[in-house]
Structure formats: structure tokens, C-alpha cells
């Protein structure tokens, strides 16, 4: 696999909207497992999951997103971006998976081999976000070119090591959004920044 060939794994079947299914632990685990299986098939990387840790992360994430759920329906799109980034923050903070030794052919100039655990978690969150946005808003998503640059991943890994919240800023960068580096785990702050930005843009028009 090369970084220019990022593919979404087939998500587990569900009769529910994905935004609902992702908040069920059984579906969440299955989707995560499928992402890892796809990475293994395409790169030879094998990653072992700590199910208990993954469940703890899921529960913490669930409580945070429920607590910050907006009442305003116009904030839904921004909220889905936020919850995806928050999921990545929580996954990278507690890392519920561990990579086996790299395969013999591994090229560590590629992000997946440079940081397998971080790559897997990031890809999972990106793919879930893309699937939800497509289903809810019929919106296409694309990765920013910086996602394919190994220097970004150097910086990403180093920053997350010292401050897990920075994962949310990097997630925004990878998805082509304006990152919030100050208080990324506050949805209210994210909305206020967006409103202030829109106001400033309107004033310039």
C-alpha cells in the first residue's frame, strides 16, 4: 500500500444510520477490526487490539460527545467533524493497539510503517468521518496533501506524544479544515471560532 492509495474498508452491515451505529460498542469494534484487517492486507502490518482498553476509550469518548452535543441542528456538520477528531485524540492518548514487528519489505519513509499504531487510528477516524458525512450530508471528503507528507507525521507523532489534544488539530489539518490548537476538545470553542471567522470574512466582503 502507498499513501496515495488510501481506501475505506467495508463497514459492518447495519440497519441504523452510521452516526447511531458508531455509538454502539459492538459495531465500533467490528469497524475498527475491519480497518486493521484492511491495513494488514495492504501493508503486511499486523496490529493487536486490547479490547478492554478500546472499550474504556469508547465509553470516555461517548460521555464527552454526549455532554457536548449541540441543540442547534445547524451545528451538526461541525459536530461530526469534532467527534471524529475527539475519537482520534482519545485513541492516540491511550493507544489500544500494538503493532507487531514491521514486515521485511517495510519502507519507514511511508507513514504506515513510520508509525503503524497512529496511522491505523487516524485512518479509522478519517474513514468513519467520511462515511458519516457522505450518509448524512451527501458530502464528499478528501484528504489534504499534507496527509501524504512524512514530515507531517514526524510532527504529528512528536506533538501527540507531549500533548494528546494536538491530535485534533492535526486531524483538522488532514481533513483540510482550519485547526483549533488552543482548545480543540471544546466544541463550544470550535463553534465560536468558526462564527468569529465567518464574521471577519463578512466584514472584509
Amino acid at each position: 500500500m502507498t499513501m496515495s492509495e488510501v481506501q475505506s474498508p467495508p463497514l459492518p452491515a447495519t440497519t441504523e444510520p452510521l452516526r447511531v451505529a458508531i455509538r454502539r460498542l459492538r459495531w465500533f469494534r467490528q469497524a475498527f477490526a475491519r480497518q486493521l484487517e484492511q491495513i494488514r492486507a495492504e501493508s503486511g502490518l499486523t496490529l493487536a487490539v486490547d479490547d478492554r482498553k478500546l472499550a474504556r476509550i469508547f465509553v470516555d469518548w461517548l460521555r464527552q460527545i454526549e455532554a457536548q452535543k449541540p441543540r442547534d441542528p445547524t451545528a451538526r456538520r461541525a459536530y461530526f467533524d469534532f467527534v471524529s477528531a475527539l475519537m482520534l485524540r482519545d485513541l492516540l492518548r491511550d493507544l489500544p493497539l500494538r503493532a507487531d514487528p514491521l514486515p521485511a519489505h517495510a519502507d519507514t519513509a511511508l507513514p504506515e510503517y513510520f508509525w503503524p499504531e497512529g496511522f491505523a487510528c487516524t485512518l479509522f477516524c478519517l474513514n468513519i468521518r467520511a462515511a458519516v458525512l457522505e450518509q448524512e450530508f451527501n458530502a464528499e471528503t478528501a484528504l489534504a496533501p499534507v496527509f501524504f507528507d512524512l514530515r507531517s507525521w514526524w510532527s504529528f507523532r512528536e506533538n501527540v506524544g507531549s500533548d494528546a489534544n494536538s491530535a485534533m488539530g492535526f486531524f483538522d489539518v488532514f481533513t483540510g479544515q482550519n485547526p483549533d490548537w488552543q482548545m480543540p476538545d471544546s466544541f463550544r470553542h470550535r463553534l465560536d471560532r468558526a462564527l468569529a471567522g465567518a464574521g471577519a470574512a463578512a466584514a472584509l466582503d
Binding site: L54, A55, F58
Partner: peptide
């Protein structure tokens, strides 16, 4: 899907 529900609920309970 009771058996799988118990498995998932057990990890939730632990959390």
C-alpha cells in the same frame, strides 16, 4: 445477539 451483547456490555461495565 445476546452472547455478543454480553461480551460488549462486560467491557463497558469494566470501564
Amino acid at each position: 445477539d445476546f452472547d455478543n451483547r454480553v461480551a460488549a456490555a462486560t467491557d463497558i461495565a469494566l470501564a
